[in-house]
Design a binder for these strands. Structure first.
Length: 563
RNA sequence: UGGGCCUUCGCCAAGCGGUAAGGCACAGGAUUUUGAUUCCUGCAUUCGCCGGUUCGAAUCCGGCAGGCCCAGCCA
């Protein structure tokens, strides 16, 4: 049932995006009988939110039209690819819930067919072998405003190109000595059409084909063929490939496919003030600012997962952001909204005091402990009811007490009465401070008649604060994150150095209520007032679990001192 | 500068010649044993700019401006 939900949401949308409209038309006109899409990452790094958009779009379109979605590695360049990325990529795609039927496709499986296609192009007089150097090819390509000049090899006889191409495959040429070029138009205003290189020589073993090949196809040649072989109907990619579409079509139209695929481009997604650049993140990793590509502060899929985002929240985010052709920079607030929306109805509640200060109830019997029923999830009682111990000494949040309160402050201050959530009304009597003036202990008295948090005489209290019983509380580390870098403040400083922000994580020595152990079946909790947390599956150690804060709850009252 | 694409509220984004949807954010108010949630309410006389066509234009035409992408034997 939950599986059907996303489909219903997609098909139930009032307006269709431009990709859906194009597909609708193709289907209506009988151009394709079924919809087949694909996600074709190069295995050269970790997936980030931008990839999530592509994964969710492509798999979502396939599902919406009752078609098929392919997971394919575009592993055509062994010099840049590492097979160790493949596992994490597949894991991320699965985690996001994209259904690729368990089958993984590899571009490298098509090398034979691609070779055949290249031979076909040569035979048609549409490709030729060239011995120009990389420099010469660049120099004769022309510029943005000037046409290129023809390759001296351009009119090489078909038989000769065929022989050279065969020799290239046989390893008779060194890297860079020979390439296969398409014969299109050196004067084309579209630089991609100026006799693009189809094959290059690279004597590098491939992770999957070993040393079978020493020539590898270029993206512009390989990709359309990969799509055509797999019967992809709609090849959805990002905007920077718009200029490549004429070439995509050229390849597919000249290599004899009965029903060639169609490329449609959409805009990438960026997050405002969030740095996603690989180069920058690499620097953060290398400098030990973060502990890897899955650090919760990084918006990689793995990082978001560790931070506590759910697949549903990311899908919701992509859906909410929409698909268009304009460069979109989404607010991080939208992502936070999505995770709040997903979690608020299903996350179990738990008390946690992040920045503890001790509270002693002077008129509470020494040595006495009682169990109180705590139920602070009104909408979903099953998710928040548990028994929590209570005694004379508690921890409360440091910010929940102020010796000299600002206006409108409604929590604890000398002389004020507040409710300890689900426990008792307490009135602050005094506080103790150390030499530096930091509050070390807060004294109060309680009203035994207010057990459970209601007063029989009906008197109201302005504030309600959460607490944890000092003797039984479990010490935990709570990590609060700032988003890595604010681009408005500058990724680079005035010296041109990367501006690394080492203060992006704060570790708090926090306490949570002992019922944590019972609630542990869930990995996400809503902590009272402080937001949503997740137990970090990677860093959590027995005895002192590590919590990552996913997102703060909204707060309409900020302390004046925080401004 | 040649080519391609883009430009609707702070951010996404509908709109496809008939007189500016929605979401996020924000701001008020109500309810609240989480300053959360929920619940109402408000939030573009205007669609990058200038002209034109039309009874009527964000939508069509012309011009201009701004942004992004392309000169890898990367993808």
């Amino acid at each position: 049932m939950s599986d059907e939900t996303s489909t219903a949401e997609v098909t139930g949308k009032k307006s269709r995006n431009f990709i859906e409209e194009a597909i609708d038309q193709d289907l209506r006109e009988g151009r394709y009988k079924e919809v087949v899409t694909r996600f074709p990452p190069e295995p050269n790094g970790f997936l980030h939110v931008g990839h999530a958009k592509s994964i969710i779009l492509n798999s979502g379109i396939a599902k919406e039209y009752g078609g098929t979605f392919h997971m394919r590695f575009d592993d055509t360049n062994p010099t840049k690819e590492k097979s160790e990325f493949m596992d994490s990529i597949v894991e991320d795609v699965k985690w996001l819930g994209a259904d690729f039927g368990g089958k993984i496709y590899y571009a490298s499986d098509y090398f034979d067919k691609m070779y055949e296609c290249a031979v076909l192009l040569i035979k048609k007089g549409l490709a030729y072998a060239s011995d120009l150097s990389a420099d010469q090819i660049r120099e004769t390509r022309g510029t943005l405003t000037e046409a290129g000049t023809n390759d001296p090899n351009r009119e090489r006889p078909v038989d000769e190109s065929l022989q050279i191409f065969s020799d290239m495959k046989a390893g008779k040429y060194n890297d860079g000595e020979m390439v296969l070029r398409a014969k299109i138009d050196m004067a084309s205003p579209n630089i991609n059409m100026r006799d693009p290189i189809l094959y290059r020589v690279a004597h590098i073993p491939h992770a999957r084909t070993g040393d079978k090949w020493c020539i590898y196809p270029m993206y512009d040649f390989a990709h359309p063929i990969e799509d055509a072989i797999e019967g992809i109907s709609h090849s959805l990619c990002t905007l920077e490939f718009e200029d490549h579409r004429p070439l995509y079509d050229w390849v597919v139209n000249n290599t004899d496919w009965e029903n060639p695929p169609r490329q449609i481009e959409f805009a990438k997604m960026y997050l405002k003030n969030i740095v996603t650049g690989k180069r920058y993140i690499k620097k953060l990793v290398e400098n030990g600012i973060v502990d890897g590509w899955d650090d919760p502060r990084i918006v990689s899929i793995a990082g978001l997962r560790r931070r506590g985002f759910t697949p549903e929240s990311i899908r919701k985010f992509v859906e909410l952001s929409g698909i268009s052709k304009s460069n979109a920079v989404s607010d991080y607030a939208m992502l936070e909204y999505c995770i709040r929306e997903d979690l608020k109805s299903q996350a179990p509640r738990i008390f946690a005091v992040l920045d503890p200060v001790k509270l002693v109830i002077d008129n509470y019997p020494e040595g006495q402990t009682e169990e109180l029923l705590v139920q602070n999830n009104v909408e979903n009682p099953g998710m928040g009811s548990r028994k929590v111990p209570f005694s004379r000494e508690l921890y409360i949040e440091r910010e929940d007490f102020m010796e000299v309160p600002p206006a409108k402050y409604r929590r604890l201050y000398p002389g004020n009465e507040v409710r300890l959530m689900n426990a008792y009304y307490v009135t602050c009597t005094s506080c103790e401070k150390d030499a530096d003036g930091h509050v070390t202990l807060i004294h109060c008295t309680y009203d035994p008649a207010t057990r459970g948090g209601d007063s029989p005489d009906g008197r109201k209290v302005k504030g309600t604060i959460h607490w944890v019983e000092a003797g039984s509380a479990i010490p935990v580390k709570a990590r609060l994150y700032e988003n890595i870098v604010d681009e408005e403040k500058g990724v680079y400083d005035e010296n041109g150095e990367l501006n690394l922000n080492p203060n992006s994580m704060t570790v708090m020595n926090a306490y949570v209520e002992p019922s944590l152990s019972e609630a542990k079946v869930y990995d996400r909790f809503q902590f009272v007032r402080n937001g949503f947390f997740v137990v970090d599956s990677k860093d959590s150690a027995p005895g002192s679990p590590v919590f990552n804060r996913i997102v703060s709850l909204k707060s309409s009252y900020k302390l004046p001192t925080q401004a």
